[in-house]
């Protein structure tokens, strides 16, 4: 009974994890601009990875493998959001603009004057 329960748990976690990964992938393709895409990538990245790695941990039981799995999970948890954060900051400070981000332009200290939906601010350089 325990075994069957564990098997079901592994199935649920792994399938849910892959579904979230694929959703993130679809978001990468379908969403309109960089900032929304980074949202899709980073959120589903962490959630999908968490579910898949937890599924694997449940499958292997408690041993050295599980410890390593948690190390991987821990690292992904630290590095992935940090990279996403730094990336979005870099994009913003380079002048990449979202279509309607006009009222939050104070984040980087730079101001934007473009009111249309162009994705590049006038001071943008080297972003392609």
């Amino acid at each position: 009974m325990m075994e069957v329960g564990r098997e079901i748990g592994v199935w649920i976690l792994l399938v849910a994890g892959s579904v979230f990964c694929v959703i993130g992938g679809i978001g990468m393709i379908r969403l309109p601009d960089f900032y929304t895409r980074s949202h899709a990538a980073s959120i589903t990245d962490t959630l999908g990875a968490t579910l898949i790695l937890l599924g694997l941990a449940l499958y292997s039981g408690f041993n050295l493998i599980t410890v390593k799995l948690f190390f991987v999970l821990f690292l992904l948890y630290i590095t992935s959001p940090t990279a996403a954060h730094a990336l979005v900051k870099a994009a913003y400070s380079k002048g990449l603009d979202a279509p309607d981000l006009e009222d939050v332009t104070e984040i980087g200290g730079a101001t934007s004057s473009s009111a249309d939906s162009a994705t590049l601010r006038p001071d943008a350089k080297g972003v392609n």
Partner: peptide
């Protein structure tokens, strides 16, 4: 799970090819 992950890799690869900005590509690479 592997099929799911590979599909996602394919989609990320497509975004890395499409761009349009360099940040999209870096995001896809990550």
């Amino acid at each position: 799970a592997m099929i799911g992950v590979l599909t996602t890799m394919l989609l990320a690869l497509a975004r890395a090819f499409m761009g349009p900005t360099v940040f999209d590509r870096v995001l896809a690479a990550n």
